[in-house]
Design a protein around this nucleic acid. Structure first.
Lengths: 242, 242
DNA sequence: CAAATCTTTTCACTGGCTGCAAACTTGTAT
DNA sequence: ATACAAGTTTGCAGCCAGTGAAAAGATTTG
């Protein structure tokens, strides 16, 4: 569909390479479409192959598994995100830097809300995918942790801190998305706001919010958690576009 | 294998039920042992069944998949852990409560270090398992979030806070385990210490530790993150035994 | 055009997993 | 004890995922 205009291709690809990409895209597209329609279990590889006009065997020449054809992250995106993290001011605290780039990443994705929703739905209803992509995500986290390591001067495999910040940041993102897509108004704005709130909360040591009633009506004891007041963590300044 | 002595069974189970549990345990044990020896791919269901003295078909009467037989959490344990959480003092801040029970849970597991190591190894080297158990863990997190909801008076599906604390706490555990098993001395004591440090760090808003050099040698700027001094989060008091 | 190279396809095979019905075991009422 | 109900295990037939090897087809190169 449409020869890429404007963007300079690194090297003019030969016919062979072009055909390969075309085939790969065709398979991906067929897989996503069929699975969105019928659900993961009700689609066979044979059907995907058929829909993409290739033999079943060819499917496996391109993807290691059915789930693999539905994966969301590739090496390019990992590299991009790491670069964005490196580009944050050196004296910015790690959590804030992570919050910024992860929020930016999500907001960029939300530019195509339909696709984003479809992906989220898919992962919600097919936890197995979560597993199929685990290796990729683990790698993603590891790479981010390394960058944090550079920034803090802590070797990522000696000090647990880098891995922990990253793991926590990712947990916030996942948890927030999961909560957000269950609300009546899953808008891009709402997602950003929720994310911001989540990261702020973490920066405050996850002290319980005072809203509602104070839970079990116990005496307002001494220091429940670190009780400090802290400035907001994520500002609308994110950028570092792709 | 030794009839359980001493421990009082809640209700006297009939022969049928006892045999079922026995079979289930036999299959589990065979699966873990074989996989620890040879790796996930080099073990077939048929072999597991044979080692457990059941037919291959029976394997699938008990477990939905090969991976399922290796899962670490079952409903009983979820319920137990939730109970432990409920049993924490009502005015204890959620993060601290979670830290306490999750640490206790891990320490209990470390009573059988061999088994624990085997499990950790398995998940390290077979990320697919991560996916296979995703549904279980999601459920575990959800249940804990509900309890946190009770404790804070925040409905777990209206306010994102409960889910976030739980997700973060779990992230700390996972990340810590992952780091710990890569150290030269993966002892139970070290794991506990690391966990404690991790949770403390989170309670302090994940401010970067001052160790090493201050990273990019930037000026020691104003407030990098919430810079408070906070009391340690997890004390050796955990208990709530099974 | 022909040779060298890469891709796609066909074929045969292993292993995960399910439905079904027969065989067997345990619980229960007589 | 005996017989019947209910639950469990097993073998079998079959679908689907995934892999190796070699034939067949397309693309590039000389």
């Amino acid at each position: 569909m449409g020869v890429s205009a404007g963007v300079a291709e690194p090297t003019e690809l030969g016919l062979r390479e072009r055909k390969k990409r075309q085939t790969r895209d065709a398979i991906r597209e067929a897989a996503v479409r069929l699975v969105a329609d019928r659900g993961l279990e009700r689609v066979t590889v044979d059907e995907i192959a058929q829909a993409a006009n290739v033999s079943p065997r060819t499917f496996f020449n391109y993807f290691r598994s059915k789930e693999d054809a539905l994966a969301g992250i590739d090496e390019d995106e990992i590299e991009e995100t790491c670069a964005a993290l490196r580009a944050r001011p050196a004296d910015e605290p790690p959590l804030r830097a992570l919050a910024a780039i992860l929020t930016a990443r999500l907001e960029r994705r939300m530019l195509d809300p339909r696709m984003h929703q479809a992906r989220v739905q898919m992962h919600q209803s097919h936890p197995q995918l979560f597993g199929a992509h685990a290796a990729t995500w683990r790698n993603f986290e590891r790479r981010l942790a390394e960058v944090i390591g550079e920034r803090t001067g802590l070797s990522a495999d000696e000090d647990p801190y880098p891995a922990t910040v990253v793991a926590v940041a990712m947990a916030v993102v996942r948890s927030t998305i999961s909560h957000w897509q269950g609300t009546q108004n899953p808008s891009a704005a709402a997602l950003s706001a929720n994310l911001r709130a989540g990261f702020d909360s973490v920066a405050r040591g996850l002290a319980p919010p005072a809203s509602g009633q104070p839970a079990a009506s116990g005496q307002p004891r001494a220091a429940p958690n670190p009780p400090p007041a802290t400035p907001p963590l994520v500002t609308p300044a994110d950028a570092t576009p792709a």
